[in-house]
Amino acid sequence: MKFNILVNEGPYTHQASDSAYQFAKAAVNAGHEVIRVFFYHDGVYNANRLSAPSVDDRDVVNQWVRFADEYEIDLAVCVTASLKRGILSDQSALRYGKNVDNIEKKFQVAGVGYFIEGSIIADRTIVFGD
């Protein structure tokens, strides 16, 4: 089965991202396909490469990156939601005159339509958040 996943909350405050990660991993290990994980609302904070959790905690950003590397999963953050929350690609940083970019490169920046497209292609769309 093809899954399209939406993460609507940021890391550490809320379990949504952890649950989405566990679900995605379990789905892939059970032979299903995760076609896309899209990050919306505060979910875009999951792409912040400047996150530095303590060493005895899980690293939410990195676990997505490792997962995406291993299974070739498409990770995408919403462009509008991320810009206003200060999650910037190198191109956006340049464009808006900010002296730093902070998107982890494994996440692509896309319009929210990219998520809707995923829900059309997929057999199931699973949303993580309140």
Binding site: Y40, H41, A81, G111, V112, G113, F115, I116, E117, I120
Partner: peptide, 19 residues
């Protein structure tokens, strides 16, 4: 909260797919 406003953005952006 921002959910209602950003939900409307999704509806508008999704309209292009003509579902």
């Amino acid at each position: 909260t921002v959910y209602a406003l950003e939900a409307l953005d999704v509806v508008l952006a999704g309209a292009v797919f003509e579902q």
